[in-house]
């Protein structure tokens, strides 16, 4: 069902704000994982601002939903959301990457309130997140686990070990999303270690797959709701996205996987996000 115009605007405005913050924080921190932070923003905003049961004032609330960013290098984009929600004072983000701050490039569960797994070494978060879902099932808890994967990460063998286990253990109390931006660090995934047909692979391993445009908030929300309603199989949402989404000179450019921005470039990036 399409979102109401009002609800759509609320989420779209939030996503825009988060992207702007990603650019601002990068300018101040000296560098950031821009490409992947920008591609994951729309569905992460939908999860955090519409569905997830979390409490910024009580980050370790026992019954909260767990959210694992297995693509840990998206920490820049994750932190800007957590700051906006009030898990910590938003201005602290100015010290992103800096000595003595809470935030390294990859968010650390032992340091940053609201972070459920210390990720950054790719593919670790997937198994940790599935384990959280399995733990909830065993303990009879009704919190939900969200796991965000990158596509390059799916080249790791342990992802497929987790996919088998997720089907075997019928982990329907988690929702997994893969940020299918078709780029990793060295270039296009299909030229480095091909993943296609990615959706069919998950299906062959016993998962239900929902393929969406990861920047269309209606499709994102429909898929997240369908995943919650599913009771037979674990669900993998394959979100087709654009690396660097929203900043014209970063879109689809692997060199913007990680980069720094001087004030002039940051201004250009912000102008592009604001549609100027």
């Amino acid at each position: 069902m399409p979102l109401s115009a009002e609800e759509h605007k609320r989420l779209a405005d939030k996503a825009k704000h988060i992207r702007e913050r990603i650019v601002e924080v990068t300018e101040r921190s000296g560098g950031g994982h821009l490409g992947g932070s920008l591609s994951q923003t729309d569905f992460l905003v939908a999860i955090y601002y519409k569905y997830a049961k979390v409490d910024p004032k009580n980050p370790r609330w026992e019954d909260r939903d767990r959210i694992v960013l297995s693509k840990g290098h998206g920490g820049l984009g994750h932190a800007t959301i957590l700051g906006d929600l009030g898990f910590f004072p938003d201005p602290e983000l100015d010290k992103f990457n800096k000595t003595g701050s809470k935030f390294g490039m990859h968010l650390d569960r032992m340091k940053v309130p609201g972070v459920d797994a210390s990720t950054g070494s790719l593919a670790h978060g997937f198994a940790i997140g599935l384990g959280m879902a399995m733990g909830a099932k065993l303990a009879g808890k009704d919190w939900h686990t969200y796991i965000v994967l990158s596509d390059g990460e799916c080249q790791e063998g342990t992802i497929w070990e987790g996919v088998m286990a997720g089907a075997m253990f019928k982990l329907t109390n988690c929702t997994c999303i893969v940020d299918r931006n078709r780029m990793s660090l060295d270039g296009p995934t299909e030229e480095i270690m091909a993943l296609d047909p990615l959706d069919k692979k998950f299906e062959a391993f016993g998962w239900r797959t929902i393929v969406i445009d990861g920047h269309d908030l209606n499709q994102v929300c429909d898929a997240l709701e369908a995943a919650r309603a599913e009771t037979e199989k674990p669900v993998m949402i394959v979100a087709n996205t654009v690396k660097g989404k929203g900043v014209d000179f970063m879109e689809d450019q692997p060199k913007w996987h990680y980069g720094g921005l001087d004030s002039e470039m940051a201004a250009r990036a912000l102008a592009s996000l604001r549609g100027k």
Binding site: G72, M105, S118, T119
Partner: peptide, 8 residues
Amino acid sequence: FGPAGTTH
């Protein structure tokens, strides 16, 4: 790779 944190 100091700023990257413990994972790196």
